[in-house]
Write a protein that binds this DNA or RNA. Structure first.
Lengths: 296, 296
DNA sequence: TGCTATCCATGCGATATTGAATATCCACTA
DNA sequence: TAGTGGATATTCAATATCGCATGGATAGCA
């Protein structure tokens, strides 16, 4: 083993980068601190690109080179995790682990009921739910199936369009009672608006569609959940998916005819997984569950 | 090391799957056949999902489970390769390796000149060129930079739209001299048409745009290069990017006003790489080179 | 200043892993 | 039917790797 088996060393590298010290990394990996130290030394030696860490008494600080390769090692790690999931059960069985990603809102307010139903039908299934508004992880194998609000373009993905969730402006009843509701878009200036903080491509699109921008918001947050929380707490006017607003109750639509736009809903998974029965089952169940949500 | 360091074992697994036998895989990895055999046995044992291979005297045949995890291991492998590329030079230097993916046509007819120019300016650069019409590999780290014909949607990608290449129908002069050219779309039935073989989403889109379908083609191939070769050899009428047709010469446009559509051109790379100087440099150079190609 | 907690490095015996040699199996062929 | 080539398994001594114990160093704090 002289040429270059570095894979184990990469794994050790990741533990150190994530934990910041040899001892903590070693504990996480279940190996000893001296061994992990030797791994890092061996890796630096064999890569021949100088030090990956600067040793200090507080731990190991990654160098620029270490930061540069870190994302790649994370990709390896995600793929390794995917292997374990794949083998968590035979491919023709309706049990084992499936990892799903979805947005904050969908993951907390829409999926739980769908997943509970799924679990009742197939008790052997184990669901991992990863909530994030980033949509980068299907190819990198960080998750098996994704519920998305944008059309996936990658060829290797099996994607199905479920429909579209209309996004509208709402206010909680308690807010409406106290402050009334705007009759026209101009009245917005007199109201408390809940919106985004940082500019993201997605937000820019949304802002253009409804002709609102960051400066008009009274409460700015990048957490959709926080925004929804503020909305239901009666803080002010905010966006909400129409089916979700119906389900939550006590939310009254604002200028429903005038402001709003459609958010397409897609379910996607890697094509490789379509032969794995539980993946296919979860995929189909998510599709029908989301369709029911849209129709509600 | 009892819990689960399987990364090295995954690497061994991949070698066996790729080469079909322990002995060939071992030669590829630079380790001995008994060692590799023990790796596979250990992996099967620790994964606890039964055999990964059926041993025969002809070699090792992957089981269904092995086939299921293979893509994930390939992802790990691609990421490992990306690490080596990243470290092939310091991140602030204009040397080292950059891996680019592009379509067959662009890779063979457009990029070479652009890359040659690049190499003249920065002799320390090493370019790896991966040609394929699949566009799945940026997140999985199989390549660093991609030239694409579709808009990338993934958030973690840094993408720039260069413009659009118009796709038109052409015939080689020699064909036109012998058979004449169609005056209307209906005349196509009397001509030899070069087109695609299998139905792909991309082809379906293209077919819809120009109102042609598979049954009308006299020569069917899924290799764009073969189609272009047939076109320039005077086989019949076929599609070609307008700037490329101009550059090749001896190609005459057919119904230029009537048939054709625009192919957007994008350059994309992972956002992580934008701090690596040579990546940025190649990205920018590709952008300006492709823009020049479109303008030509 | 001295105590503690946390960190990395080193020496050393125990253990696990490796490679060379070899045995064995089987398909194929003259 | 015997020989050949290519394959996997086994044995065993050499060696690489590991964990434990320990040393040394620094920051925080009373």
């Amino acid at each position: 083993m002289d040429s270059s088996d570095l894979w184990t060393l990469y794994r050790s590298f990741l533990a150190v980068v994530q934990h910041g010290s040899l001892s903590r990394g070693a504990k996480d990996l279940g190996i000893s601190q001296p061994t992990l130290g030797r791994h890092i030394a061996a890796l630096e030696d064999r890569l021949g690109s100088g030090a990956l860490f600067t040793r200090s008494v507080r731990g190991l600080t990654p160098t620029e080179a270490a930061l540069a390769i870190r994302p790649h090692v994370e990709t390896m790690n995600a793929a390794a995790a995917a292997i374990r999931r794949t083998l968590s059960a035979p491919s023709d069985a309706l049990e084992g682990t499936v990892r799903i990603s979805a947005s904050d809102i969908v993951g907390t307010h829409v999926l739980p009921a769908i997943l509970a139903d799924l679990r009742n039908r197939h008790p052997g299934l184990v669901i991992e739910l990863s909530l994030s508004n980033d949509t980068e992880d299907l190819i990198g194998r960080a998750v098996d199936i994704a519920v998305r609000m944008v059309r996936p373009t990658q060829k290797a993905l099996l994607a199905r369009r479920i429909g579209a969730a209309r996004l509208g402006v709402y206010a909680h009843k308690s807010y409406a009672d106290r402050h009334g509701l705007p009759a026209t878009r101009r009245d917005f200036a007199q109201h408390a608006l809940i919106g985004f903080d940082r500019e993201t491509p997605y937000m820019r699109m949304m802002a253009a569609a409804v002709k609102l921008d960051r400066s008009m918001f009274t409460l700015r947050t990048d957490s959709d959940l926080a925004a929804l929380g503020a909305l239901t707490a009666g803080f002010g006017l905010g966006f909400c998916q129409v089916p979700l607003a119906r389900r939550l109750g006590n939310l009254v639509p604002v200028l429903a005819g005038e402001i709003g736009f459609d958010l397409p809903i897609w379910i996607a998974m890697h094509e490789d997984l379509k032969t794995v029965r539980r993946m296919r089952t979860v995929f189909d169940h998510l599709a029908s569950g989301m369709k029911a949500y849209l129709g509600a």
